[in-house]
Each structure stands twice: as structure tokens, then as C-alpha cells.
Design a protein around this nucleic acid. Structure first.
Lengths: 137, 137
DNA sequence: ATCCTACGATGGACCAAATCCAAGTCAAGA
DNA sequence: TCTTGACTTGGATTTGGTCCATCGTAGGAT
């Protein structure tokens, strides 16, 4: 995943210092799921003048480019998952909120029978497994 | 599900006119998923002085009592699902946001192998199927 | 190497959802 | 019916996010 910057440049993404810092922060944490605000804090350590709007804009673009996934497991702040090229689901601790990437067996879409699809054209399934992590249980 | 009020009283839930109205609104819509604000609007039709804080408090209690499920499928307002005693998953239109309750086959928890559980004690799995509804596709 | 200009960044205003809090009210047990 | 602790109120506050007019600059053109 560390060629994220390469891929973006190759797609004609205009490279600015702000975008580079945001992309690098996401790229650095492969199975970390930061909030926009956490990204902003980390970015500001390297680029003190970066604005929140820029972080939001950049994250939004990375999401629509398909380079990053938006996950909202708790109804609070959205989190950004840099692992977009590797299909996976999430395991969340009901107590402390920790998130882990997991890989269930089978194809989740296959579990939804035709007569339960109501004419929808399915594109994907997101699974959130919930439970208590070792240190909370 | 229409004995929600009974169950709550039986559990020693202090009954007030505000709580009754909120519970009845949820109880009335079996496969509807209202936002807190929509509940507030409907409640205010019957009880003009009811405050937002009370609606939020009451919804929060119904959730922790396990009578209602909190679902956040779009990162915007949370929605409240009165169908908590009937296990089901959600099918969401990526375009218009419509939500349908669906019943996939099999046990979603069974699809997560032991070596992908990282010592967690699993309690449930939430699946969100995404796609386009008939009128949006 | 420099110039242009369209695209990106800024920051402060604004917004929606949700929570907090001090003061007032009331359900239900004694 | 009285009492009291639990509930409600509404306004302030917090949180997460968006908008927009203006300024700045990346990178192609010359």
C-alpha cells in the first residue's frame, strides 16, 4: 500500500503539501482507523497551518477515488480505513470501541436470498462483528 | 410487539406521558426506522411541550433496555429500529437511503473463524447490504 | 526560467445531531 | 395526601461536519 502517492500522481491528482501529508498519514497506518479530527491533529504536527476543511476535502476525495474507505461503526465520527484494496470486515469492541480488520469466510452477498432482495441491485455487504475484546471481557 | 408498554411497566419502568408517547410511536411502526428528530416531531403532535432532551433520553433508555435498536447506516442521524426482538439485517439504497429489514440465511457469526476473532467474545453481527433500490437503478 | 490560471487551501461562519445542566415537575410508594 | 427521588424542561454547549469568499500555488504553457 505504500505506493499510494504514486497511484494518486498517476491518476493526475494535483499534489500539494497538504494532500501529501494527509495521504502519508493514512498510508502509514495500515490497520488503523483514524477520525478526520485525528488526521487533522497528526497533519498539524507536520504542517501547522493546515485547515480542517482541507483535511475533510482530501479525505472525501480519497474516498471517492476508492483509495480509502469510510466506516462509521459507532454513529459518532466517521473513521477512515486505508485498507480499501483488501476486502475485509470489522470487529468492534462494544466497550472500548477498538476496531480490528477481519476476514470472514464465504461471500456475504450469497446469504441474501432473491426473495429478500426486493428488486435491489446489490453492490456490497458491510459486516460489523460486535463483542468484547480480551482486555474488556 | 404491541405489548411494549406492558413489558416496560413490568420491568419497573416509571411511566410518564412523555415516555408513553415515545414508546407508542416506536411501537406503531414495525419496519419503519425513525430518527430522533422524527420521533420528536410525531411526539409533539400529541404532546406539544415535549422536549428534544426527553426524546433523546427515552430513546437512549429503550436502547439500553434492549427494546429498540440503534442503527446508523449513513453517518448522519441515528435511526431507531423497534424490531429488536426479531433478528434481522438491513438493506440500504446507496442513492436514496431507503432502509428495508431483510433476513439472510445462515448464522453470520459462524462465518468468522476462530483465528480471526482475536480473543474477542462475540455477541452479534450487523450486516448492511448496499445497492440501488428498484426506483433508483 | 517565468508566467498564467485553474485548481486547491484557508478560516471563519454556519449547520445538524446530540449532550449537558440547573431548576421545576410529577409518579407512585408510604 | 405527602414525600421524594426520578423525570422533564429549554437553553447552552459540544461535536462533527459543510460552506464560501478570498488567497495561494502546482504545474502546464511559453
Amino acid at each position: 500500500m505504500s505506493d499510494l502517492l504514486e497511484r494518486l500522481r498517476g491518476r493526475g491528482w494535483r499534489m500539494t503539501s497538504q494532500r501529501r501529508v494527509v495521504a502519508e498519514i493514512l498510508d502509514a497506518g495500515d490497520h488503523v482507523h483514524l477520525t478526520a479530527d485525528e488526521v487533522h491533529v497528526q497533519a498539524a504536527e507536520r504542517l501547522p497551518e493546515i485547515s480542517r476543511a482541507t483535511v475533510y476535502n482530501t479525505l472525501g476525495e480519497l474516498v471517492s477515488l476508492g483509495e480509502v474507505l469510510e466506516v462509521s461503526t459507532d454513529g459518532r465520527a466517521k473513521r477512515y480505513d486505508p485498507n480499501a484494496h483488501h476486502p475485509h470486515q470489522h470487529l468492534v469492541c462494544s466497550n472500548c470501541g477498538t476496531i480490528r480488520d477481519v476476514h470472514p469466510t464465504g461471500d456475504p452477498l450469497a446469504d441474501l436470498p432473491d426473495d429478500e432482495r426486493f428488486g435491489f441491485t446489490l453492490s456490497r455487504a458491510e459486516i460489523t462483528y460486535r463483542g468484547l475484546c480480551p482486555s474488556c471481557s
